[in-house]
Amino acid sequence: MAESPVIQIDELSKIYTVTEREAGLVAAMRSLVKRKTRDVRAVDGISFSVSEGEIVGFLGPNGAGKTTTLKMLSGLLYPTSGRATVLGFRPWERNRDYLRRMTLVMGQRNQLVWDIPVIDTFELNRAVYRIPEAEYTRTVGVLTELLELAPLLRKPTRNLSLGERMKCEIAAALLHRPWVLFLDEPTIGLDVTMQRRIRQFIAEYNQRTGATVLLTSHYMADVEALCKRVIVIHHGKLLYDGDLSGLADRFAPFKTVEVELQNGAGGRPLDRYGEVLVQSEGRITLRVPKVETATVTGRLLAELDVVDLTVQDPPIEDVIEQVFSQPDGATSHLPGTVADAPFDSQKQ
């Protein structure tokens, strides 16, 4: 689409003022009179844009500012500074027309009414969103089919398993056919099968409706399956915005080389080829700086009895972990981070 992007964020920041209290009775007494406060920069000047129909993975460790950003985009939080528009609306003005076009799913929280059957919560949302009868019936039909809800709809929410509840939560959030979906950890706590079902559904929904999806998840499998593009934030700052496949190039200046040797290592020191990650029987996994990959594989093939050799990017989990395990402030010195590389989110 050549038109303006669905989500557009410029220099968005959110600073929380939190109260602090030390342990102990004296401190408790003191806090009765005056509470110490401290500013926390939850989101610190991030900018990005998302085009119509994209599914973007929003990554970062706990407390990175993902949820805060989602809350600002869904109109629940005012930013401290910066601009954001979604579908041409400023989210925190909470325009009715905007609210009718977007939805927020939080994996850790329920909107289904606990004591009544699921279908009745749907009815409630129908009334709140003023969905016409025919459209409602059709949407419920489609969602029921896609998510296999038929046996669940008549059950009270409290009798559902976690996974079943999540499916119904998602359905309840989509009854009004939103154009923009904010999904905050939609698969959290679910088993692998259920995670896959939800994932498939999101992809299917995106394909059918062309809705724009911004998704946070701790499960890299979700991200790998759904998102071509990821945005990584850490300590409220944007670290990376681009292709998922580019993430490894950027943050992992290593490749893993796996070799299988004819007669085992035979006591030869292998660490002169690279860092030995795993060594068992004749199989050895080495971590090799990316620039030396060609040289090292050449030497391995020349000097050892190699049966098999593969070169791989490290698993995405490891890459992510490596990014986030950097001490505070150190991230900006990684090669290829926003700090010293030109910002090229739309590189493809």
Binding site: R21, A23, G24, L25, A28, M29, S31, L32
Partner: peptide, 13 residues
């Protein structure tokens, strides 16, 4: 007692 008192202070209202 210590924690109870501390908690009560926190929920002063």
């Amino acid at each position: 007692f210590r924690t109870a008192l501390a908690i009560q202070f926190q929920y002063r209202i």
